[in-house]
Design a protein around this nucleic acid. Structure first.
Lengths: 340, 340
DNA sequence: CTGAAAGCGCTAACAA
DNA sequence: TTGTTAGCGCTTTCAG
């Protein structure tokens, strides 16, 4: 583009060696006389020099970049986590590259490959699969967002899924629901049931409710998933006798389901109760507004960044796990039912 | 971390020079004998070598990174543009770093500085200000998303703002509205009125309607902005006689306004008509659903990427401008009024 | 406090 | 087809 201007030009103009210039621009306290410092600074000014961080990073074996992998950047839940992590990381002069896996294992694998390219100092991710070994194999400091059964080996942050799920279920119980369905994603290896699903089964057991296998839906955590849920649900024989509420894996799905139910002539918040998970902004604006479990997105994002940062400082320290509690937000999508 | 393994180790194991290894790993068709190629490939396999793209890029004066600056990544409008641009760019082996300016000039300036760090090959942005000179000064190929009055010098994509605004205004006129307010952001230098605002004034003139300065609101394109709009509007003396519709700068603001109006005891879609801009998913799920102008987000994102890519190919070619038409989406937030 | 010199991992002439 | 050599811009010993 333009004749690149490097420390060598600055050094020449300032009448010092490039070492001295280097000592000035990298703030790591190399001792420079006030006079030299002045000369260098004016030279920098005059030439409009900016430090080439790529070159510096290259030399220092450090890129100043962090890869953040999320499943759906268009979901406000993830964009806010992203933003918070980014804000925190940028304070420490790291730049963040956001990768969108779209819930696809294939795309995730592609990103793992990118992560091995030497471009990044670290990795924050919500992985689609539970293949912790693959993440470890990247050989980069990594932080997981969201609990994973096998992820003892990774720094982890997220919401306490057990507690959040339980909160929603208890609320449905208290409001008189006895035929509760759940819609989660059960992906990949069948040997692993999602945490949410487990909590659900424990809950049924505890309350002495029968487990109706038809009422445990596995759909995507997307608008499409919400529509699919409704489609499958209303096709169940005698469904109105078999289900009075459904706990959705996230708000995106729940909101989509609200709309799909209404289109199918089922009135959400009356004929059927819905509870979401996340509390994205749109949850407050649907009709009826969505009862959901709020997750502290900003805290989670910032925590992920902090965990990574402290892992940079001490690569050898034992993995940490920092979970936040959720908060039940009561709105209009759950009916109050007299006890059956 | 681990004893870095470089082409030099590969070369040694394969019994060739590092140039040969380089020729193999960079696919730019340097001729290599089948035999050598085999040897190198097995060595790579055996050693688990991965190319250090930072080093390669450093040498080639190319980083493979593009900086994408958006004002609000949590707004689905921008996250979808981001995703589309990213998808296109990744096809060409570029990685995308997303910067969130939060409509802040200060943050934008910080990002311009980052852009000058040598980390990026190019820049795609929706700038907060109209300071094209500052963007040019970065010295990087740049593509602007969204029309800018002064941006003849930059490759530009976006929606035809004039047409989109006009569409909305005409629709309000046809449905019998005669007291139309507008809510846009008028920032920075007062000498510059937003395009939208100009179209609005032209429209009033053409229809012989009086320009009521109180009805041109300048608020942020955010939830906060929507609330502020309503707050200011309902405090206008005799407002019910002075305004029957408002055209909002984007959907986020419009949806927030819908809710704020209802809380203020004003029924949207009846007492007041609202038109948004963008057609984000939530627009379909509000109550009443939002009438708005749809913008082709994916096309815009992909076009931005394409413009940048072709600018890489030919840095000298004249700037292009590719605008897409908007599409009016009729829903429930606009009342049908008998002619006054 | 400062300069000379040696690379970080890779690519690109240029010779052979 | 291959190897040798010279860096990309910066940091960092090591002498001075």
């Amino acid at each position: 583009m333009k004749p690149t201007i490097s420390i060598i030009e600055v050094a020449r103009l300032a009448g010092v060696s490039k070492s001295t210039v280097s000592r000035v621009i990298s703030d790591r306290g190399g001792s420079v006389s006030p006079k030299a410092l002045d000369a260098v600074n004016s030279a920098i000014q005059e030439l409009g020099y900016t430090r080439n961080t790529i070159a510096a990073g290259f030399r220092m074996q450090r890129t100043g970049m962090v890869l953040l992998l999320v499943p759906d950047i268009a979901n406000p839940f993830w964009s806010e986590i992203t933003r918070a992590a980014q804000d925190r990381l940028e304070e420490e002069d790291y730049s963040v590259v956001v990768g969108n896996t779209d819930w696809s294992e294939q795309r995730e694998t592609r990103y793992y490959k990118l992560a091995r390219s030497g471009r990044f100092d670290g990795l924050i991710l919500n992985s689609v699969t539970d293949d912790i070994a693959a993440i470890l194999a990247i050989g980069l400091p990594a932080v997981m967002i969201g609990e994973r059964a096998e992820s003892q080996a990774l720094d982890t942050t997220g919401t306490d899924t057990r507690m959040a799920t339980r909160m929603a279920l208890d609320y449905l119980w208290e409001t008189g629901h006895r035929r509760i369905a759940i819609a989660t994603t059960e992906h990949g290896s069948e040997r692993f049931l999602s945490l949410r699903r487990k909590v659900y089964e424990d809950f049924l057991l505890e309350k002495g409710l029968a487990l109706d296998a038809d009422l445990a839906f596995s759909v995507k955590l997307s608008e499409e998933g919400g529509r699919e849920l409704v489609r499958e649900l209303v096709e169940l024989p005698r469904w109105r006798d078999r289900v009075d509420a459904v706990l959705c894996g996230n708000d995106i799905m729940a909101i989509s389901a609200i709309n799909a139910f209404r289109e199918a002539g089922v009135e959400p918040g009356k004929d059927i109760s819905l509870v979401g998970m996340d509390d994205i902004p749109a949850a407050a604006h649907t009709f009826p507004a969505l009862t959901t479990v709020r997750k502290p997105r900003s805290l989670m994002g910032a925590m992920a960044a902090d965990l990574l940062l402290s892992r940079f400082e001490d690569p050898a320290k034992p993995p940490e796990r920092r979970l936040f509690p959720g908060e039940l937000v009561l709105r209009g999508s759950v009916a109050k039912r007299g006890r059956a």
